[in-house]
């Protein structure tokens, strides 16, 4: 049985913890709003990029299409880019991405493919390293980065492109968590190379087809330039969605923690009061029986 003093200490320590989780929840909520704004602001660019790419890809086809679109012709070596967060305490956010990646790695290995993993973010690296240490080729650290900018994504994109040019892989897939809502994030795999033709709705495609474009310098040169940029844009979008997802996940995890701490405080306070009452009764009995003995 813990003494009164022990109980008091425990209550105060749980209260302190509750304050911390509450503060973290509020910080996450503020950051979530920022992340959502950033994701929203980045949307027009990737949308326009998608439609431009779609209608230029329609004109350049067959032999002229760059390797980044058609692939190398084989699919022996796969590069998986696993984007996770840099910090923990955000519920099942990182482990669900890591599980998704793990399943895919197993599947690819079962098919006899060679797998390489590029980790973005510390947490995914920590989880995947346990099982696939030999497959991880590098880890990109974004810990120092406060607000993810296009430059960060572009650096990753350039790196992937160099590796592709050097023939280090055939197929590249990007793993991140799609932000559906604050409580719902879905781990997703997106194939970057060879680039799947972006989907455009019918009317837009018809509009684009009716417009005969003039290209400067020429269509394939533009495409050569556009596709690498599109890959960076996709990575950028994934990183932004990840930040929003992380913050949403952290917010609900911290909300839970705050509630649990509240319950614990109630329970501890209850047993503290009971015990104090018991002690008072005991002391009274001692006094009364002492007085009776006289």
């Amino acid at each position: 049985m813990p003494s009164l003093k022990d109980l008091r200490n425990r209550i105060s320590s749980v209260k302190a913890t509750q304050k911390i989780t509450k503060a973290m929840q509020m910080v996450a909520a503020a950051k979530l709003r920022r992340a959502q704004d950033a994701a929203e602001a980045a949307r027009p660019y990737s949308q326009r990029m998608g439609s431009v790419l779609a209608n230029i890809a329609a004109t350049v086809s067959g032999e002229d299409a760059p390797k980044l679109m058609t692939g190398t012709g084989s699919d022996k070596t796969h590069l998986l880019i696993a984007c996770t967060s840099e910090r923990g305490l955000c519920g099942g956010f990182n482990s669900s991405i890591a599980r998704f990646v793990r399943d895919d790695v197993r599947k690819l290995q079962a098919e006899g493919k060679e797998v390489k993993i590029l980790c973005v973010g510390k947490k995914g690296y920590d989880i995947l390293r346990r099982e696939f240490a030999a497959l991880i080729i590098d880890r990109i650290d974004l810990r120092e980065v406060k607000n993810i900018g296009f430059a960060n994504a572009d650096a990753i994109g350039k790196r992937v492109m160099t590796m592709f040019a050097a023939g280090e892989f055939d197929v590249c897939t990007l793993y991140y968590s799609e932000f559906r809502s604050v409580i719902n994030q879905v781990p997703t795999g997106l194939q970057l190379i060879p680039a799947a033709a972006p989907e455009v709705d019918e009317t837009e495609a018809a509009n684009a087809a009716s417009a005969m474009y003039e290209y400067e310098p020429d269509a394939s040169a533009i495409l050569d330039d556009l596709i690498p940029r599109n890959i960076s844009v996709q990575i950028f979008r994934a990183l932004l969605e990840n930040v929003a997802g992380e913050m949403g996940s952290k917010m609900s995890a911290m909300d839970n923690a705050t509630r649990n701490a509240g319950e614990m405080i109630d329970k501890l306070t209850m047993s503290y009061n009971r015990q104090r009452q018991a002690q008072i009764t005991k002391e009274l009995i001692e006094i009364i029986s002492g007085a009776e003995a006289l």
């Binding site: 602001a41 980045a42 027009p44 660019y45 900018g149 296009f150 960076s232 950028f236």
Partner: peptide, 9 residues
């Protein structure tokens, strides 16, 4: 006319 950068419109 629209001017868009990856970060925003």
């Amino acid at each position: 006319f629209e001017l868009v950068s990856p970060e925003r419109l």
